[in-house]
Amino acid sequence: MIDLLNALVVLSNYVLIPALAYGSQLALGALGVTLIYGILRFSNFAHGDTMAFGAMVTILVTWLFQGWGISLGPLPTALLAIPFGIAATALLLLTTDRLVYRFYRQQKAAPVILVIVSMGVMFVMNGLVRFIIGPNDQRFSDGERFIISAREFKKLTGLSEGLAFKTTQGITIVTAVIVVAILFWFLNRTRTGKSMRAFSDNEDLALLSGINPDRVVMVTWLIVAGLAATAGALYGLDKSFKPFIYLQLLLPIFAAAVVGGLGNPLGAIAGGFVIAFSEVLITYPLKKVLGYLLPDRFEPDTLVQLLSTDYKFAVSFTILIIVLLFRPTGLFKGKSV
């Protein structure tokens, strides 16, 4: 019995909790990608750097608050700064749309051209972020680090394995749930949300139903700004902020969006968790877990690791390719890629 509990604790400590937090971050990122794909009809490669920008502004404002001595007690000050990150990101995205994307929209440019354009935007945003805050690691978390630390857990339960639950992981999961709930309520229950869905469903008809495309596009960017800045800040808070990391994050985020079905918000969330759990589980050695579960004589000598952690990104890639080959519309029915 104790063995079973220990196995469960090990699995939670190294797989369930990290994957849940990582999945929430991916889901928020993938929601942004999928909304843009659904409504503006292109794959936005600049999304990772949009997240970096949002996180950067959040960091700068956090530092300002810390300098002023404002804090949230046990919670990270960054939570107070996120709204500022969102506002700045919204401004950035609307400006970008005005300067860049609108031109191509009016030209009725093919989606592939918009994809290339978004890559250009990606490089500019990446440069902007590195120019402002530099290419290095930045840490900005403060407050209580743990909801429960491994040592405390061991003392509390008397188990031989510890379970650490970081404050940032808790905040990430809770925030993701709240944001997703609001988003779904918005898309399904409000007129603006329905306009967006209508626009995503059938652009021609939406136009002929008198839906103002400019307004839909603007609202979409605003929501995407909210999602991107929140996702970026939470990721930076939970892990660490480094501009290039967000560029690399683009792959799992797109994998999540595609796996769930591009253009389908529910799919993006499911995809985020599918990717996160696959990445973590496939690279996690089950030696300890099996050691607790199996009788002594079956205890494995090897690590029982399916894939070395170096190949973590290969997991997203493989899932992406399998889905594109066998089910291009994704697990939930999205648009075919």
Partner: peptide, 23 residues
């Protein structure tokens, strides 16, 4: 265990998972 880690990543929890499993 003698395992590599890549520099410049934001998150090393997966690497630590493997190291911890080996003990």
């Amino acid at each position: 265990i003698n395992a590599a880690h890549e520099d410049g990543k934001a998150d090393y929890s997966a690497e630590i998972g493997a190291l911890a499993a080996a003990g």
